[in-house]
Design a protein around this nucleic acid. Structure first.
Lengths: 106, 106
DNA sequence: TGATATACTTCGCATTATGATGTATACCAT
DNA sequence: ATGGTATACATCATAATGCGAAGTATATCA
């Protein structure tokens, strides 16, 4: 998939991967894999950004000797998903424009 | 609309605005306005980029004392649109993931 | 004379995805 | 014991890109 296209989906995908159940980095990558691939450096950057934007809160836990940082979605994080759903209407309109077959100028 | 989301659509929108009929910068901005807003600095940057990538060819013309640069889409430009249509399938799958209502873990 | 529309250009800044690299533990096969 | 793989997170440098700001220039109309 085109990188630029991915950009607009990444943040919302990560939020969506967390919205139903708190999750942590490594698991998010695996959960998203069937839909879109993202590297660890990309994800951890996104998690930091979303946390700084108050869309996620973090809680560090120890699990079998290893650190796990569980992320929880906030109201603002949920709003971000809702905003995307609003944007989706515009995207559909743009998609129709891109795929239209122009025959009306004859 | 979210800027990052826009990024993935801009190039293809510009190509789509040209595909049926050669066009020039100022007109492209107006034609795209109902679907998505883009500034002049953004568009001219895109046109340069698409030209460098051999997706467009240019022909300068004079029209009522002013310069106009008409852009024509190439085969590679058309292919870029086709690639987007392929990506669209993935986008739909991602959209479904984002908007899914999880009730299966009960 | 000045505002508005047309038309293209260049510069600098901020945002962001990603590869490379690093740290650390657990588990399993050789 | 040694090495490979999975788990888990962090940081840095780089490249791509949208866009505001500012500039150049002509045509039209009040």
């Amino acid at each position: 998939m085109d990188i630029q296209l991915k950009r607009g989906l990444l943040d919302v995908c990560v939020l969506a991967a967390i919205k139903n159940e708190d999750s942590y980095g490594y698991k998010i990558i695996k959960d998203l894999k069937p839909y879109l691939e993202l590297s660890e450096s990309t994800l951890y950057t996104i998690l930091k950004r979303l946390e700084a934007a108050d869309m996620l809160t973090v809680q560090s836990m120890e699990h079998e000797g290893r650190l796990r940082k569980y992320y929880h979605i906030t109201r603002q994080g949920s709003k971000r998903i809702d905003d995307f759903k609003e944007d989706w209407k515009e995207i559909l309109s743009i998609y129709r424009f891109i795929t239209r077959e122009e025959t009306d100028h004859e």
